[in-house]
Nucleic acid binder design. Structure first.
Lengths: 225, 225
DNA sequence: AGAATTAAGATAGTATACAGTATTTAAAAA
DNA sequence: TTTTTAAATACTGTATACTATCTTAATTCT
């Protein structure tokens, strides 16, 4: 009746609400569902071939992820982020990336440091290609390695959520060709701080990294139109 | 305290799922529902006099608030926090309180500073009474004023969530009589930083405040039998 | 007796039905 | 025409019914 195309392991059971949740989230993040677009339960149910029940539960989950807005008796719509929202989230990211690198300075294993360096090298390679999507992915990968080394699961959870919120706007950053040199230098600083186990330094450069990122994004936003 | 979507205006409509959500959250935070306790949909539905539908939706929401754990086809149970979870959350709070006070140094109005001072004075008064619940509330109020002055809604949202997670464990802190002097001094430092508009100082003392808090809580936890 | 098996009950997953409320459309009045 | 009102429609909110699975306890087998 229902085929679980998201399940690689056919043994594992994934409730429909989670399938719907993943589907809708993906659609929102990739822009197939645009900010402001209404999400009607019947329509979604029909399109996805399920009843309204899992749709509704998925919508509640998306609401707490800040991806959709739910107005009682009116319905759901894809949430848009104002410029201020983006600034706010980046402000948070600044603090949390700083914490993340600080913890990574203390906790990252030598193996993981190697992995981090490799990720950095890969990313620089990809930068040559000019494929913005892949660049963004490589950047996320780099930061993922750091966060996973912090050992703080709550931090990982929150930063993931912030990243999801920013996902739709992240491409603005890496477009300009001059970026490579700056990002390379900043990432190198981060790697050095971690390798030399200097938490205060790591915290500082991570913060500056996000701050630079923020300013860049704001510029791109204002340049639009 | 728990004033979230609470509606004073009786005209405004609150979906049952939100009523259930508030009810269950309150029950969890006040310990009426203990960590580890199973939450069965039928049972809750009957007890609250509603159908399973709003119960299920409320449980999904509680899951994303990290208050209950949902295992597919098994059910929900009140989530317990390990000592490590508590440390992780406090580590996050350290970074976010630091950010909060830093922003408050920049954005807090003179009026709000007066309110903050009053809240501090009130708190010191309440400390004399020895009523731990009220002390905790007064402390939350003090920090609330700061966060509301940051102007960063996302920060407010996340710190609220972290606080909710810690709510059940917060009383451990204020019990010992020696606390008053230390907390008074630390809060004074925070107030001074904000009043004199020194973000770097505010950030520093806020971080130290949480760090002290953390160490205290850990001590209490280990002392428990 | 202890382990394995099966059957019964409990519980979550999903679909559907119905009720109530916004929204839209059409009609009537100004 | 423009505004008001009324009816129709399209939603969401909630309850309930049905199904699939998990748990528990009884039963059988070794």
């Amino acid at each position: 009746m229902v085929d679980y195309k998201f399940n690689i392991n056919a043994n594992e059971y994934l409730p429909l609400r989670d399938v719907v949740f993943n589907t809708l989230r993906d659609a929102i993040l990739t822009g197939k569902l645009q900010p402001g677009e209404r999400l009607m339960e019947n329509q979604l149910a029909e399109k996805l071939g399920v009843s309204r029940t899992p749709i509704r539960e998925a919508l509640r989950m998306l609401e707490l992820e800040n991806l959709v807005e739910l107005v009682p008796r009116k319905g759901a719509q894809v949430l848009d982020m104002s410029e201020k929202d983006i600034i706010d989230v980046l402000e948070l990211r600044g603090a949390l990336e700083a914490l993340g690198v600080k913890l990574a300075c203390k906790n990252m294993s030598d193996e993981e440091i190697l992995k981090l360096k490799k990720a950095h090298a890969d990313m620089m390679q990809i930068f040559e290609s000019g494929d913005v999507e892949k660049m963004a992915d490589a950047d996320e990968n780099f930061h993922d390695i750091i966060f996973n080394a912090t050992g703080n699961d709550k931090l990982i959870q929150i930063i993931s959520n912030l990243r999801i919120q920013l996902y739709r706007y992240r491409l603005a950053h890496l477009k300009s060709p001059g970026q490579k040199v700056v990002i390379e230098e900043q990432h190198n600083k981060i790697i050095n701080a971690i390798e030399n186990r200097i938490p205060s330094e790591g915290s500082k450069v991570a913060y500056e990294h996000v701050k630079y990122h923020t300013e860049y994004i704001l510029n791109s936003l204002n340049k639009d139109y």
